[in-house]
Design a binder for these strands. Structure first.
Length: 420
DNA sequence: TCTGGGGTCCTAGGACCC
DNA sequence: TCTGGGGTCCTAGGACCC
């Protein structure tokens, strides 16, 4: 049996932990740049705020209904996520941290008649020790555990736990699940399936395997089998090494000049290098992209990207920033309002197994110790305390974040004070 | 009239997830 | 005026190899 533990309305719940006045009130959290709604409390959902809603369209509605609005605070969410995962790890050694707010637990070794109690205990402990409410669904496959979790969240809100074990119960839950709510079925396939008369997860399980294989490919077939109780996905306790790493941002204001774009691109390249060093790997290729704002239809639009091959795979900030700037120079065009740039690195391999370039003088040891020192200083003194000049110092392109809550758990100056 | 067979690697595009 | 960011997998097609 797999259990899926999913934090309820995670970002919204995080905002409430240190601000209990918001209990029972509508809360929404916005994406970077305060752009879209990416998390909603139940109250906000019930008021009809859709996922992904542009914040500016709902500004009045938020005001009229006293909705608490927050910019996203990833330092806070990341830290609370770690705490939740730590609590879960006490209940089983076999855990897969699937996303910032979800974990699969392998409960195969637990006697089946205790499962409901055991899950209820997990749920109680998490909320008591972290303040984050969770829902738990358990079943024989991951996809069915997802179904069970959704069922627990929607129909058993008070209990918050649902176990799918008997075929009768499974069929009932599958019938109550719309096809577009199945894990692995997105908008496009849901449309296709509805076109052929399939509306629920249960109806989907009755389809022929060949048809699914042909029209929704092997991923669809795996979903079908998982819903029938045949496990196709196992627990991934050790996250596989990343194949690509990307850092990109939309700008708070539109950018037209080359220098500012270059500063942003150098910053993102440096950030990618940090991420690579953190996982002890190097990248062989770097891609830089720029684009204008597609929502401003009156503006001339420009999307472009350029790949740069790194002669020797690297994770050294200045090498990568240099490559990114080389690429940017090739695609920069005057006369556009740029909205977003980004840097992506691929061809990722372990640091220890780098193939040296035939024509380059090996200066690995030196670069490595410089980077290690920079990382160490920045860890103690704060991000970008030591930085590349190319990154600039003004950050005129920075994010808009007007409603960010304090970093209650990761910054001394933001520590909550209580007056008695 | 006829034109081999069996591969790999890379990229782009489309689907999906949170 | 204002519309996020970071990933995965699969397939098809082209270029290449012997």
């Amino acid at each position: 049996m797999y259990a899926l533990v999913d934090c309820n309305n995670f970002y919204a719940s995080c905002e409430r932990v240190f601000n209990p006045k918001m209990e029972g009130k509508p809360v929404v959290v916005l994406s970077n740049n305060d752009g879209c709604v990416i998390a909603r409390s139940n109250e906000a959902k019930e008021m009809g705020v859709p996922m992904g809603a542009p914040a500016f369209e709902y500004e009045k509605m938020f005001e009229q209904n006293n909705v608490q609005v927050f910019s996203s605070n990833y330092a806070l969410y990341g830290d609370l996520s770690d705490r939740v995962m730590k609590v879960l790890s006490r209940f089983t050694p076999n855990i897969e941290m699937y996303s910032i707010d979800e974990a699969f637990l392998d409960l195969s070794n637990f006697p089946y008649h205790d499962l409901e109690k055991y899950c209820a205990n997990i749920r109680r402990t998490v909320i008591q020790e972290t303040g984050i409410p969770v829902s738990i669904g358990a079943a024989a496959t991951k996809t069915l555990a997802k179904v069970a979790n959704r069922y627990a969240k929607k129909r058993k809100r008070e209990i918050g736990v649902h176990i799918l074990n008997l075929q009768e119960e499974i069929n009932h839950a599958l019938t109550a699940t719309d096809i577009e709510d199945v894990w692995g079925v997105g908008g496009q396939y849901a449309k296709l399936l509805k076109g052929t008369g399939i509306r629920t997860a249960f109806e989907f399980t009755l389809l022929q395997e060949e048809w699914v294989r042909k029209n929704i490919h092997v991923t669809g077939l795996k979903t079908l089998l998982e819903l029938r109780g045949v496990p196709c996905y196992s627990l991934e306790q050790v996250p596989p090494a990343k194949q690509g790493i990307c850092t990109s941002r939309s700008f708070g204001t539109l950018v037209t000049d080359y220098t500012t774009l270059q500063e942003s691109v150098a910053t993102f390249a440096s950030r990618c290098s940090e991420k690579l060093r953190k996982q002890h790997s190097v990248a062989a290729m770097l891609q830089v992209f720029v684009h204008t704002n597609p929502f401003r239809e009156q503006d001339p639009q420009y999307f472009n990207s350029k790949s740069v091959i790194l002669s020797t795979p690297t994770n050294v900030s200045y090498d990568m920033a240099k490559a990114a700037i080389t690429g940017l120079k090739m695609i920069y065009r005057k006369g556009y309002n740029y909205k977003k740039t980004g840097v992506m690195v691929t061809g990722i391999t372990p640091e220890q197994s780098v193939q040296l370039s035939m024509f380059e003088h090996p200066k690995f040891a030196k670069n490595k110790s410089v980077m290690q020192s920079v990382d160490r200083i920045n860890k103690i003194m704060g991000r970008d305390k030591v930085r590349l000049t190319a990154m600039g110092f003004d950050r005129t392109w920075k994010l808009r974040q007007e409603k960010k809550s304090p970093c209650y758990t990761t910054r001394w100056s933001d520590l909550l004070t209580i007056q008695v």
